[in-house]
């Protein structure tokens, strides 16, 4: 708070001073804002990096779960923070979906993208007792009658379904069961028929014999799950993944953004994090700079087109 007012008062002079002292960055502990609750995949990825970042940057790194308003509160807080590189946002495509649906009155353009560290492919999951246990069977069932899809309206798991129905010409009936955790519970209880989950989210209930993973929307099979077929193998050529992105306030000096991005690159090559990614079935996929911006723009445009075709915009 104090910091922000100080900056507002000193204005451009303050910014200039910051740039001059860029090689001293970071000067104080860094705050990573995760706009999701503790225990979601966006939160895990941020927490993987907490200790390595502290070591690499030589400063404390705190993680704050700023929850509410479908990620918009945390996003807003980072957008409005002092652009000095000490406040970072860690979030996947939720930033794009919230903007596409106009839940927030700003989108990715209000931030400086820092880096992408990994992607995680998602899978279509059904109840073990269901009559459809392959992707073609699911699509046929969806065409025949309405399959209830467990989603959080307007969130990424909803957009994944929109992509699938767009690509295959099917329709689903959407039921607002929430994020990955509650949705998989509803699926196991037979309250919805189909859901998009990450393999990691589905695992405990697959082990218990309640759920079955039908298809992974990845280019190839996962090393840890050699028996899990991809969607491509089953005739639907579609890649659907979560992209773990990091952002800073728009006006953050370029060299600070870059310093943090490099720290993330170094961190993501450390054995500890490589092991974590493997454990969580995430795929390391580092991007920064122009490449990252192109990837974000590509996904954002796709999403907007999808929302327009399916007539989904909230007010």
């Amino acid at each position: 708070m104090k910091r922000r007012h100080f900056l507002a008062a000193t204005g451009a002079a303050g910014l200039a001073a910051h740039t001059a002292s860029a090689q001293t960055y970071p000067e104080k502990p860094i705050r990573i804002v995760v706009p999701n609750p503790t225990g979601g995949s966006a939160d895990y990825v941020a927490r993987f990096f907490q200790t390595p970042l502290q070591r690499i940057l030589g400063q404390g790194v705190a993680i704050a779960n700023v929850v509410g308003g479908g990620t918009s509160i945390g996003n807003r807080q980072v957008r409005d923070a002092a652009p000095d590189g000490h406040t970072v946002l860690a979030i996947h495509q939720a930033l794009l979906t919230a903007a596409t649906l106009k839940v927030m009155d700003f989108g990715p353009e209000a931030f400086a993208p820092v880096a992408q560290v990994a992607t995680e492919y998602t899978a279509v999951v059904v109840n073990r007792k269901a009559a459809y246990q392959t992707l073609p069977a699911v699509i046929a069932a969806a065409k025949a009658g309405d399959l209830k899809a467990g989603v959080q309206i307007g969130a990424i798991n909803h957009f994944l379904f929109l992509s699938l129905s767009d690509a295959t010409g099917t329709k689903f009936r959407y039921v607002n069961t929430g994020g990955g955790g509650p949705t998989r519970t509803a699926l196991a209880g037979g309250h919805v028929d189909v859901a998009f989950l990450t393999v990691n989210e589905a695992k405990p209930l697959v082990d218990s014999g309640d759920l079955a993973i039908v298809a992974l929307f990845a280019p190839s099979r996962l090393p840890a799950w050699p028996n899990l077929p991809t969607a491509r193998e089953q005739g639907t050529d579609l890649l659907l993944n979560l992209s773990y992105w990091w952002w800073m306030p728009k006006a953050t000096p370029r060299d600070r953004v870059d310093r943090f991005a490099e720290a993330l690159r170094t961190g993501s090559q450390e054995p500890e994090i490589v092991a974590k990614f493997a454990e969580f079935n995430m795929v390391p996929a580092f991007l920064k700079g122009a490449e990252l911006e192109a990837e974000i723009t590509r996904q954002y445009e796709n999403m907007k087109a999808l929302a327009a075709r399916n007539n989904v915009t909230a007010g």
Partner: peptide
């Protein structure tokens, strides 16, 4: 008041 969790609307 706030975000309506069901529709994502404000």
């Amino acid at each position: 008041p706030g975000i309506d969790e069901t529709s994502g609307q404000r």
